[in-house]
Simulated assay, not measured.
Amino acid sequence: MGFSKENIKGVLLALLSSLFIGASFIIKKKGLRRAAAASGVRAGVGGYSYLLEPLWWLGMITMIVGEAANFIAYAFAPAVLVTPLGALSIIVSAVLAHFILKEKLHKLGVLGCVMCIAGSVIIVIHAPQEYPINSVLQIWNMATQPAFLLYVASVIVLVFILVFHFSPRCGHTDVLVYTGICSLMGSLSVMSVKALGTSLKLTFEGKNQLIYPETWFFMLVVVTCVITQMNYLNKALDSFNTAVVSPIYYVMFTTLTILASVIMFKDWDGESGGSIISEICGFIVVLSGSILLHSTKEFERSSSFRGSSYMPVSPTLSTGLCSTNGESFKHDEENVLLPEEICLRRQESTR
């Protein structure tokens, strides 16, 4: 099908969102480094001095702008188009980290970036058009169709099983538990965000949708899902390495979101088999590029530690000081260690 003006708006907003979100990670990290260098206490060990750092707040504002653009994008374009484009924020973050934070981008990382871009182009070219939506009641009919209700029921059952059975037993040892909860709830939150965003768009166009209780119900679902999603995502990031959590979460979240959108909004109805296959292939290319980029970053980090000799890091790190052979030094802005770096250095020092 042809590429509509609505899709163009959605793509531009999604690209803008990726740019702002990707940049926000770098700005916030730069702010965290400055705050830790100034106070001697990192955020990872309980420091809150970053709250007084203007650069960190600039990063937060940048992220909020990016998330707002992403929210609006769902009101114009289908989720099967907007969601995969979120991978481009990883590229923005990796490229800016290379130039600003001096974090080396491996050649395979460059290949991962190229794959993400190529896959995104394929998805954009073959993106489906959405059927015109004139009322939130129309979305409500989509949300209450038997096929989507079955999907919602399945998600709720799986989430309850993961939260009450698997989370207490193996949540801290199996990365799929927390990321599974986040991804399942995330797929419902995106559907609700799209419904809410479309309702607000129609309201601004002069068709007031705030008079319908369905609009407020979708808002309640958004708040509930997002709070649950963020809670368990924080647990996942606290329990496992970011390089492991990020690609797994992205794969599961994007896959489930596309599945939910296809069921609820009938994104692939009327699409040719070739277009659907092309979209799936583009999605697989984006996923592969994202995983390759994350894996390469972790490989580079591990290799840099194996190539150097480090002495044990003393417990005085919590005060901003490290000891090596009885000598102490204070971290500067560019030498603030991350928790996983500390662990790797300790492991290397004991070999």
Rank of each mutant, 00 (worst) to 15 (best):
S303N: 08
A97S: 07
H172T: 08
M311Y: 14
I291L: 15
G282Q: 01
K330N: 03
L337M: 08
I122T: 02
V285R: 00
S349C: 07
R345W: 10
S189V: 10
N70I: 13
L321T: 05
C322R: 11
F99T: 11
I21V: 09
H165L: 14
G206W: 03
F25S: 10
E327M: 13
K297P: 01
A143K: 01
I139Q: 01
G307E: 14
S120H: 07
K201M: 13
G86Y: 03
I280K: 04
T173N: 14
S314F: 06
G22V: 01
V262H: 05
A97E: 07
L111Q: 10
V45L: 15
L200A: 12
M60Q: 15
I227P: 06
P213Q: 05
I263W: 03
I8D: 09
S167D: 12
K29A: 05
G282T: 01
Q138I: 08
I125F: 11
I8T: 15
V285C: 03
W140D: 04
V286H: 04
A94I: 00
M264T: 08
L85E: 14
L176F: 05
H106S: 07
S192I: 00
T203D: 05
W56Y: 12
S199W: 00
F305A: 11
G282K: 01
W57V: 11
G40F: 04
T324I: 15
